[in-house]
Amino acid sequence: MTVSTDRRTWLQVALASAGALVLSACDRITASPKGVAVLQSAEGLTRRAQRLFIDRRALAREFSHADISSDFRPNGSIDPTDDDYVALKTKGFADYRLVVDGLVDKPLSLSLADLRALPARTQITRHDCVEGWSSIAKWTGARLGPLLDQAKLKSNARYIVFHCGDTLEQTLDGSGQYYESIDLIDAYHPQTILAYAMNDRVLPVPHGAPLRLRVERQLGYKQAKYIMRIEAVDDLKHLGRGNGGFWEDRGYEWYAGI
């Protein structure tokens, strides 16, 4: 009796220690830059595989009015407290100007009325959060492609960067400012729009008023809200911490198709 109890206790202790050892090894790999680099190598494989097998012009699924979520969850910043943003919001975004600059021949400064006059698109799409949930909404906005054509991209422009009006994390170096970036194929995709309306109403503040990006076929954190400036660049290294976006700087994939 004692023998078998002892043996069982011993076995339990051995199993628990072996498990703890494996777990702490995993944590050490996660904490080391080399370990993470190896794990992250899968991201490049995923991106290439998806681009190889899926037509880059393929449209994200569009839904019907009946599918629209009544409980669409706003995430990240939901009411920015940045001074410049608060000043704009107080005046109902009457003074808002979207700046389009960087590697363009013709920099632009557009009011909301200017944006509403651009070629528009309306789509009812599913927003897929990296956390795992989904919500469906109807978005109306200016198509990014024609807007970039108007600004005349220079030939060395490779990425479009969205600078946002919200600080999501208070940092000393200002790297807590939200930003995102996409490549030109996604920028010119027909469903890529700068949305100013959600469910047939003016875009509400929690969802990114006055202007947010909809780059369907990518996860929620790519859908930059409170867009103040669009910059065409040839490289992402000089922005933020160099990974192309607020969440990318915090370990998330730049290619957010998965």
Binding site: L23, C26, T30, V36, L39, E43, T46, I258
Partner: peptide, 23 residues
């Protein structure tokens, strides 16, 4: 925490593990 990798809650790192071993 004894059942998860990493042992602490971290979506970004857990996704790196998940997609690497998925491949």
């Amino acid at each position: 925490s004894w059942a998860t990798v990493p042992s602490y809650r971290d979506l970004a790192d857990a996704r790196h593990w998940h997609f690497f071993f998925a491949w």
